[in-house]
């Protein structure tokens, strides 16, 4: 990869970009403590690097979400150890812990993302590799979750369900319908306080 700060003279080319994006990138470069052009070239190099590894920009965006997730106090553990714990723990207490964890993440997502429900979906996609399918639909004040896994036990399914309920509860939703069996979760939520939705006065 060519050195970014090389003193070699390079040919430059002018390009057009939407003004608001340039402004935001300029702000980002100030925060990073780098000159605008240096910051932009670094971004180009990094993105080219990821594209050369076969990632699309959409995948790279998802990687950002995943990397961000690491900072959300998550830890990696062997799946079989989690399964063991889930089987041995007092189920009521364990589910209460998952609900509480969900509440915490819900509050965080609400602060950090414009659409925290979709952010929750992305969080699940990024962290719950034991799920084969995750669908989240929103319509007006209603949100529907559908999660499918071939490997989750009933206890693990119920723990995940509690996590989702905790998170959605923090976002102002109440559970309208809860339908689950081993490996399948179907949840319907309705926003209970429409006047408190983000962006409303």
């Amino acid at each position: 990869m060519a050195p970014i700060l090389s003193k070699e003279r390079r040919d430059k080319q002018l390009i057009f970009v939407p003004g608001h994006l340039v402004d935001e990138i300029r702000d980002a470069s100030y925060k990073a403590g780098k000159p605008f052009n240096v910051f932009v070239e670094e971004v180009f190099h990094q993105v080219l690097g990821s594209l050369s590894l076969g990632y699309s920009l959409e995948q790279f965006t998802r990687l950002l979400e995943v990397a961000h997730t690491q900072r959300l106090s998550m830890t990696l553990i062997p799946l079989e150890v989690l399964s063991y714990l889930t089987g041995k723990a007092d189920q009521a207490e364990l589910q209460a812990k998952w609900f509480e964890a969900g509440e915490w993440y819900g509050k965080y997502l609400c602060e950090k993302f414009q659409n925290p429900v979709q952010a929750l979906k992305r969080l699940l996609e990024a962290t719950r590799w034991d799920l084969d399918e995750i669908d989240v639909e929103e319509e007006d004040l209603v949100a529907r979750f559908r999660c499918v896994s071939a490997i989750l036990s009933l206890e693990e399914t119920e723990s995940l369900l509690k996590f989702i309920e905790g998170a959605m509860g923090s976002l102002g939703y109440r559970t309208e319908k809860n339908d689950h069996v081993k490996g399948i979760i179907l949840l319907h939520f309705r926003h209970s306080k429409p006047t408190n939705r983000k962006g409303d006065t």
Binding site: R10, D11, K12, Q13, L14, I15, F16, V17, P18, G19, V22, F36, N37, V40, E41, F44
Partner: peptide, 8 residues
């Protein structure tokens, strides 16, 4: 739109 110069 705004313009800026980048490495060709």
């Amino acid at each position: 739109r705004k313009t800026f110069a980048a490495s060709e």
